[in-house]
Amino acid sequence: MADPAGAPCVEVVDLHKRFGALEVLRGVSFAVDRGSVVSIIGASGSGKSTLLRCINYLEQPTSGEVRIDGEPIGIERRADGSERRRSMREIGRFRRDLGMVFQQFNLWPHLTVLGNVVEAPIRVRGLPRRQAMELARACLERVQLSEKSSEYPARLSGGQQQRVAIARALAMQPKVMLFDEATSSLDPELTGEVLEVMRGLAVDGTTMIVVTHEMGFAREVSDRVIFLHGGLIEEEGPPAQVFGTPRSERCRQFLAKLLH
């Protein structure tokens, strides 16, 4: 049996994902300790988004496991050693602990900013309305958008929308935050405010898995960096090593191309 106290916050074990004939992930394993930041880098199409989406089961892994505090999301191991696939409802319960931030923000346009942030705490976690409101206000404060709480998303800039999306994920008080290229669809002058918020979260000790093309940010904020190539982890280590003295030729080429 897993021991929640000693287990890493997130553990990915031999993860495979196949779309028809295309095998996107071919056996990925890594662990994320509580309070640490892991960045995932790699070329377009290398499977970064797929990996992140498998972690919260937006994509069902073909095989392998994802464990949160030692507990596998997709299957239940009974004491007698038998296994059972979990239902969507049970998987939903794990998802509460995994905050996800998408490249396209994906805010709900019919709800105000505050409405977007309180929705899941009330409906999913069942918090009383007043308590949820307080929590939501605190989260909006954290992304510096308190003054926009009664605005509709369509009236906000991209950077503001993404910060609302971060607040929405934070409001579930997740164990880990997943970021999938949170700044990639933003105009360059708006990426700064979002990265600033993410940096703040990292400093506060939030456990984070960050898929990013912002190498400066990855280098500065991460505890560890993973370079994904062809569905496998090609290089992995502290940022100084991955960015400074990568062992893998492919990783070196990838970084060189970005810097050119």
Partner: peptide
């Protein structure tokens, strides 16, 4: 997907 990711 955002809603599902929140556990809905």
């Amino acid at each position: 997907e955002a809603a599902r990711a929140c556990g809905m």
